[in-house]
Design a protein around this nucleic acid. Sequence first.
DNA 1: AATGGGACCTGCGCGC
DNA 2: TGCGCGCAGGTCCCAT
Length: 266
Amino acid sequence: MPELPEVETIKRELEEKLVAKKITDVIVNNPKVIREPQNKDFVNQLKGVTIRHILRKAKLLILELSNGKALTIHLKMTGQLIYPGTGKKSRVSFLLSDGKLLDFNDQRLFGELRVVDDWHKLRFIQSLGPELSTLSPKNFQKMLTGKNTRIKPLLMDQAFISGIGNLYAAESLFQARIRPDRAASNLSDKEKQALFFAIKRVLNEAIRCGGSSVDDYVRLSGKKGNYASKHKVYDRKGEPCLVCKTTIKRINLGGRGTYFCPKCQR
DNA sequence: AATGGGACCTGCGCGC
DNA sequence: TGCGCGCAGGTCCCAT
């Protein structure tokens, strides 16, 4: 479930550890995670190139390379990047010029590695909406007007706002005291503003904590992030609300488990 | 156009 | 105990 805070955490750690290092070899243990290019070109295009810059767009990691190409990494649900790695359970390992490995692990094989000429042209990138951090509260308010769809699936719609997934949508809506099944268009201006600041606060705090380690997510070092202990509703079905002690409910919205407090959130 | 559901995968936890 | 099933959720794709 890596979302914006988890990917941002890894991005910062990669930046610190990998920039200016060279990829000297690539060990492919499971080619399934390599989406582009399909053949040996993936390895050939990476061997001997230096990692110049590391970027994050929504939940996608982008490593810009000295040959003008980019290595993009999407962790999807169970992807991990570990440095220094062991190569033991990795799907793909990158041997670096310092003699250490960068491991890409991914239990469920949903993750995606690509080498592309121009990452800006990726369809995934082209379809992304803005990140909340680039918006003003007024912008955000305007974007919500006329949207009859339910607020939680809307927040998770990467074409609308990018970076937010199931966990942070739930936590942000709790902080803003808004029920996840409300129609976006019927939120008051005050609620829209509260939501804007709640998302900002939740994402920033999660980044400060190094992300939420539920399921498989770990930081680059292999250590867990610390935000999971701060969750108010996510994965707390049947437990008492930390504010009012009402039992946290779980409903299904847009095919996703959705946690909320029926009393605090209206 | 918005929404729902399935597909992609694997491991875990549940109920019987 | 062991088995089968549902579930976890990011993204794409198709149907309605």
